[in-house]
Simulated assay, not measured.
Amino acid sequence: MAINDDKGTPWGGKQPSPPDIDQIIKQGLDRFKSGLPGGGASGPLSIVAIVLLIVSIWSAYYTVPSDSVAVVQRFGMYLKEVPPGLHFKLPLSIDQATIVPVKRQLKQEFGFSTPGARDQYQTPRSRDGGRETQMVTGDLNAALVEWVVQYRISDPSKFLFAVREPAETLRYVSESVMREVVGDRTVDEVITIGRQEIETEALLKMQELSTKYEMGISIDQVQLKNINPPKPVQESFNEVNQAQQEKEKLINEARRDYNKVIPLAEGEKDQRIREADGYRLKRINEAEGDVARFNALFTEYSKAPEVTRRRMYIETMQEVMPQIESKILVDDEMGGLLPLLNIGAMKGGKE
């Protein structure tokens, strides 16, 4: 494309024509060929140079996923970490970018494997799968322990350069810690009541060793899965467990009956004690009342014996006479004819 003269400038009053893209590309290729050996002669060497240029441009760009960062090395030396997105690096293996998933939760399984796992260190190797679950407890019993370790990459540079094969090292660390923790407890604690305590202690010790070895790993969770006795003794172990469960069942039933009968007996006991206390207080009060009344009568009797004696006689007769249905009065002074006064008949006649 020719350069516009003065008539083609805005001052000349004529609009410039738009650039031709094909012509620009052709000029660029001609300039690239002119710089090649042989003055741009066509041939295998020029084709190789073009291919090399395209590959260099293609390898200079790379994309980092949203859950990862890229660790860039220049001639094998650590250079920097780059965040997620599209980035540029020097081509021809001058710069190398390694993608590290720092926001993704990774896991390692011991004693079992999940189908479709991509990480070679996530599942146990076939020759070690059964061995790593065989453990000896503190009471010298054997148990097959399966567990899962969930972790994240906290420091990409340490994860890549501080330790050779950090994921494999983590498997060895996890197995060592789990054997230590399980070996401090009885088999009953491992299978039943001690699972939560084992998980917590194993998590702390794994994190401590990961920090000590500068593995760049943060342990999120340690979870026990299946815990079983070895297969040769599994039937006997199940029978023992059934016997223990039956024992617990009978104990619970006995406690239920105890809680049902004992409170009822305690209530009856308290009721009878209160009744006895009430009767005791009643008799004491009656006796004290009788004593006080006798003392009062005795005092009055001392003052006027005849009057008191007559009054006591009259009061006694007032209490006794109404209870007698048939009453006969006899006069001791009369002799011969028996005087008779039938008070009961007279009282009935009036009615």
Rank of each mutant, 00 (worst) to 15 (best):
E266V: 03
V187L: 14
G40Y: 06
Q120L: 12
I24Q: 11
R195G: 01
V51E: 15
T9M: 10
L79R: 07
I227F: 03
P91K: 03
S66Q: 15
I57D: 09
A142Q: 15
I3H: 08
P232L: 08
Q134E: 13
D95V: 02
T308V: 01
F88Q: 04
D155V: 03
N226S: 14
M346L: 14
V64E: 09
K260M: 11
K225F: 09
G38A: 01
L337C: 00
V307W: 04
V233Y: 11
Y213A: 10
S68C: 08
V330W: 05
G335I: 10
S174E: 05
Y62V: 03
I198V: 04
D6M: 14
T169G: 07
D270S: 12
V72H: 05
E253K: 07
E286T: 03
N259G: 13
E319Q: 11
S93Q: 11
E286V: 07
I57F: 15
E248P: 01
T192V: 05
L144F: 09
G344S: 08
T9W: 02
S34C: 00
Q150H: 12
E208I: 00
L340I: 06
D67Y: 04
I198T: 02
N4C: 10
E197V: 01
I57N: 09
V222G: 02
V163L: 08
D6N: 12
S218C: 02
E199A: 07
K327M: 05
D119F: 05
A117W: 03
I251R: 13
M321F: 09
W147Q: 00
S34M: 12
N228L: 13
M206Q: 06
E175D: 15
K269S: 10
G8Q: 04
L140C: 08
L90K: 05
I47E: 14
R274F: 09
D155R: 05
G194V: 06
G130D: 15
K350T: 10
G85V: 01
T200N: 10
E197M: 03
V330L: 08
A276G: 09
D188W: 04
Y279K: 15
D128V: 04
S66T: 14
P166H: 04
S236R: 11
P124K: 03
M312T: 05
V64Q: 08
G40W: 05
R164A: 09
D22E: 14
P44Q: 01
Q242G: 01
Q105L: 06
Q122W: 00
V240D: 12
P18Y: 08
Q108M: 14
E239N: 08
S93G: 04
V55S: 12
W147Y: 15
P44F: 00
Q96C: 05
A60F: 06
R31Q: 13
P18E: 13
G348V: 11
I21L: 13
G138C: 06
Y61M: 09
L224Y: 02
Q221G: 00
L52M: 13
D139I: 06
F298A: 14
P232N: 09
D139R: 01
D128I: 04
I191S: 05
M321W: 03
V182N: 04
V69T: 02
F159P: 03
G111V: 03
V177M: 02
S113L: 10
G40L: 06
S68Y: 07
E333M: 12
E197I: 00
L36G: 05
L297W: 04
D270A: 10
A265Y: 15
E306L: 14
P10W: 11
K158F: 07
E214T: 04
A70I: 02
V233D: 11
